[in-house]
Design a binder for these strands. Structure first.
Lengths: 158, 158
DNA sequence: TATATATTTTGAATATTATTCTTTAATAAT
DNA sequence: ATTATTAAAGAATAATATTCAAAATATATA
């Protein structure tokens, strides 16, 4: 389920490239693109899923359409011991928190949060963050404009 | 194409929730789940795409499987004028750069970068970043461990 | 309120696709 | 060489996507 020792070939890369670009592409189209039988593609895709190379298929939704217009990054200093990820887990459990990264240097976390506006952010911090006792301090950075936001990876070319 | 004034109802939310969770869910399954005809769901989905509520369907790929094990956030101070997004655009054009956010306070950008290792990061900064003349300084933060990384939004519940 | 207009949903028909399974080919191991 | 092992092809079936006309619903207008 979590094999990282899995050798990918060019066919896999090609599939990944197509899937990353459009996860709803159908098997038949992939097969046509690669000049292979659909059944062979299905095998490949299943294996990529099974080996956790593909983690999830997800629809990217326009935050503005859901009125979540404010994006913030918050650096959180915490009193966790090393390896003791309780603060991180607590942060991760907050739905508005999209990302939690344990970062070097600050014995803290970098957190990405999406809310409707600054009022909602303040409320979130008052309600949810304040309930995590290990948090020592927070420093919030507001995003004015997002120029690029693709979690898509660079896939080796042929 | 970029209508943000589009009223979503509970059916839309339900579709979005399913699609965000698994973009490869099929129409028939959504229809069954919602107790509606597949054709009606198709209409809805097409409209959500057309109105840019759904921006993309993408496969989330395991970075480790592609040997991109190092995640970094870099704060970049730049000599852009206000509204002049050349630095941001230049950063966005770098494939390893996953996100570029124009942030408040530092007349700069917050950039998310994925590379194989620290050597590759250094190389990237030497090669690509150094070619952007407007960059004044950079401050790099290394991610030790990612606790959560979901760009999935909070969708209003019924 | 009644009528007209637009929008959405349904249901059926057809085209496409997904999926399974067996056979064949290619690879790797002994 | 010979035998396992793995991957791919090809055909057959099940399921799904997609289209379209008609019915239903909602919206606007007089």
């Amino acid at each position: 389920m979590d094999e990282i020792t899995y050798n990918l070939d060019q066919v896999d890369y090609h599939i990944l490239r197509l899937m990353q670009e459009n996860a709803r592409i159908n098997n038949a189209d992939i097969a046509r693109e690669l000049g292979m039988a659909p059944s062979a593609i299905l095998e490949r895709v299943k294996k990529l899923e099974q080996k956790s190379v593909i983690l999830q298929y997800t629809a990217k939704i326009n935050p503005a359409a859901l009125d979540q217009k404010l994006l913030s990054f918050i650096i959180i200093r915490a009193a966790d011991g090393i390896g003791c990820a309780t603060t991180g887990e607590a942060l991760a459990a907050i739905p508005e928190v999209q990302e939690v990264h344990d970062i070097a240097g600050d014995d803290g976390y970098l957190v990405k949060v999406r809310t409707a506006d600054s009022a909602a952010l303040v409320e979130l911090m008052r309600n949810s963050f304040a309930k995590i006792p290990s948090i020592i301090s927070t420093r919030t950075t507001i995003v004015l404009e997002t120029v690029k936001e693709q979690q898509q990876l660079v896939i080796p070319a042929p």
